[in-house]
């Protein structure tokens, strides 16, 4: 993973990375990649891909009954900026 690629992913997620951060991340990814390469050496012939760590069939569905509700004040408690009961964020559409 080179700096250019990292910058691209950062842009996709709409944030900027400083040069120092890019350096540090590049180093981190080298380590990560080396470890993933180790995994790639494992022979997986005839092994089905798994999504979950263990096979467990569930049947539970939650009954459609109201349980837990936050007040408006609680919902907005972490918001840096609030207006008329709404979260306020920078406008990103034209």
């Amino acid at each position: 993973m080179d700096k250019k690629e990292l910058q691209k992913y950062a842009h996709n997620l709409m944030f900027e990375l400083s040069n120092e951060e890019l350096e540090a991340l590049e180093g981190d990814f080298d380590v990560l990649k080396a470890q993933l390469d180790l995994l790639n050496k494992v022979d997986t012939t005839n092994v089905e891909p798994m999504v979950y760590p263990f096979v467990l069939e569930t049947t539970y569905l939650r009954p459609d009954e109201a349980d837990h509700l936050l007040t408006q004040e609680e919902a907005l408690a972490n918001a840096p900026q609030v207006k008329q009961g709404h979260f306020v964020v920078p406008k990103v559409v034209k």
């Binding site: 939650r62 459609d64 009954e65 109201a66 349980d67 837990h68 509700l69 936050l70 007040t71 408006q72 919902a75 907005l76 008329q84 009961g85 709404h86 979260f87």
Partner: peptide, 24 residues
């Protein structure tokens, strides 16, 4: 038109005051 949300038990009604039909 269920009483609660797809993945949470927060009740939902159209036209309620903003941010009063949510949970964590």
């Amino acid at each position: 038109n269920t009483k609660t949300k797809m993945f949470s038990g927060a009740p939902y009604h159209f036209k309620k005051e903003a941010n009063t039909c949510t949970n964590e």
